Computed example of a mutant assay.
Amino acid sequence: MTIRAVVFDFGGVLFDWNPDYLYRKLISDDVERAWFLQHVCNGEWNLQQDGGRSIVDATASKIKEFPEHAELIRAFYERWPESLKGTLVEGIKLMEDLEHAQVPLYGLTNWSAETFPYAWDNYPFLRRFRDIVVSGRLGLIKPDAAIYHEMFRRIARDLPDLQPQELVFIDDNQANARAASALGWHGIHHTSAAATEAALRTLGVAF
Rank of each mutant, 00 (worst) to 15 (best):
E65T: 08
D20G: 09
S54N: 10
G136W: 09
D161I: 01
R154L: 13
V134Q: 01
D57Y: 04
L14R: 09
Q48S: 14
T202H: 14
E32G: 03
P124M: 15
M151R: 05
G86R: 02
A5H: 06
Q174N: 13
G86H: 01
Q163P: 13
L37R: 11
D144M: 13
K85L: 14
D50V: 09
D172Q: 04
I73Y: 00
D121G: 01
F10I: 05
L159E: 12
T59H: 08
T59L: 09
Y21C: 11
R74N: 07
R137H: 09
E96Q: 14
L108D: 13
W35L: 02
G91I: 05
R127N: 02
R137W: 02
R130G: 05
W120C: 11
P81E: 11
Q48D: 12
L183V: 00
A70C: 11
A113Y: 00
L138A: 12
S28I: 09
D16Q: 00
N176M: 02
A156V: 12
A206N: 07
T2Q: 15
R74E: 09
K142Q: 10
H186A: 02
E99R: 14
I147N: 11
M1Y: 06
D144K: 13
E44A: 15
I63T: 01
P104Q: 15
A58Y: 02
V6F: 06
L98Q: 04
N18P: 11
E65R: 07
R130M: 06
R33L: 06
A193V: 13
T191N: 00
